[in-house]
């Protein structure tokens, strides 16, 4: 459905994309994962015909982004990184305007605007000016605008950045429903957890290069193991704690006296935490914290590139507040 090969794009001296290949099969979801400045938005803008590529070829639904741009646009729905809705119009008017520009009849646009408002739980706010909306409502409306034309291909650029965890989970569910109905989806994100949750395949890009791709399970296998982390109350017991948990890990424990923290790479899942807690309790080592940490985006980039996620460090993930989520700590 989306095919791109060897895409390059340069802005002045910045090489934003340096030969990117991407393929999204019909009805599948690809998550484009990368830190700030990786080139995600640039790639999305090229695929949505907002920006011509300097080199390489790309097509969506068989339409070339340069030669068949006009036809291509009726096949895609785009929700850009920043909400692109009119503040002065109401939510409903925004959706109906988009419907008009997809060349739907008057009745049909009314019907679809109502349908989208209901699906995105904006029906009550539909007749209010968008400037009275919260950030999350705006984001939902923006996503809704990309659905009015019922395009077979959706392109969402960081759809949940800046949303609170509950809203994020709602939006994930909504996106998952769309996908279940057969929509092809390309989504960019800075959150490993999000890609993990929604995407069939994940493509990691950094500095305009694809540095890894595969299913989330494949990537995780290459990204290193869970870390068991134990924070003791009394710094003097740090050595004891390290000795007690040492054989639960695959490598030697790492000690951080300043944080009173012992961490050890481990593959045993939650059972490891339970076992460690039991041993430490028996030995009378009192704890401030114990948990299992999945690799964060930072760890991913460290592993993949040997450098951190960049100066503008991305958030390490929304997972902290989402219990049981992949990237969050099980605390």
């Amino acid at each position: 459905m989306i095919e791109a090969s060897g895409i390059t794009k340069r802005f002045g001296s910045t090489l934003a994309l340096d030969g990117v290949d991407l393929s999204v099969g019909a009805g599948t979801v690809v998550g484009l994962l990368g830190p700030n400045g990786a080139g995600k938005t640039t790639l999305v803008r090229i695929l949505a015909t907002l920006l011509p590529p300097d080199g390489g070829r790309a097509s969506v639904a068989g339409f070339d982004v340069v030669r068949d741009a006009v036809s291509l646009r009726s096949m895609i729905g785009l929700a850009g990184q920043f909400a692109a809705v009119d503040e002065i119009l109401t939510g409903r008017e925004n959706l109906e305007l988009v419907g008009l520009l997809y060349h739907l009849g008057k009745k049909e646009r009314r019907r679809r605007a109502q349908e989208v408002l209901e699906r995105l739980t904006l029906a009550d706010a539909g007749d209010r000016q968008v400037r009275t909306y919260s950030g999350g409502m705006r984001r939902r409306l923006d996503l809704g605008a990309s659905l009015v034309g019922r395009p077979p291909v959706l392109i969402l650029d960081e759809p949940t950045t800046g949303l609170d965890p509950a809203t994020r989970i709602d939006l994930w569910q909504f996106i998952a429903d769309l996908v279940a109905e057969g929509t092809t989806l390309l989504l960019t994100t800075q959150y490993l957890e999000e890609a993990d949750r929604l995407a069939d395949r994940i493509v990691v890009i950094d500095h305009g290069h694809v540095i890894a791709e595969g299913t989330s399970a494949e990537l995780k296998a290459t990204l290193g193991r869970d870390l068991l982390e134990v924070t003791v109350t009394d710094a003097d017991r740090l050595g004891d704690a390290a000795r007690l948990v040492a054989d639960l890990g695959h490598a030697d424990p790492v000690l951080d006296p300043a944080k009173r923290l012992v961490s050890v790479a481990s593959g045993g899942g939650a059972a490891t935490v339970v076992e460690a807690a039991r041993r430490l309790a028996e030995a009378g080592v009192s704890l401030d914290d114990i948990g299992l940490r999945r690799p964060s985006l930072d760890d991913v980039f460290l592993t993949l590139t040997g450098h951190g996620a960049g100066d503008e460090a991305p958030p390490t993930g929304p997972g902290e507040l989402v219990l049981g989520a992949t990237e969050g700590s099980y605390r």
């Binding site: 019909a26 009805g27 639904a61 997809y102 395009p151 077979p152």
Partner: peptide
Amino acid sequence: ALPASSLAPAATP
């Protein structure tokens, strides 16, 4: 090739 879907009847350019 477009997916058969209730939400996404193929838009014709």
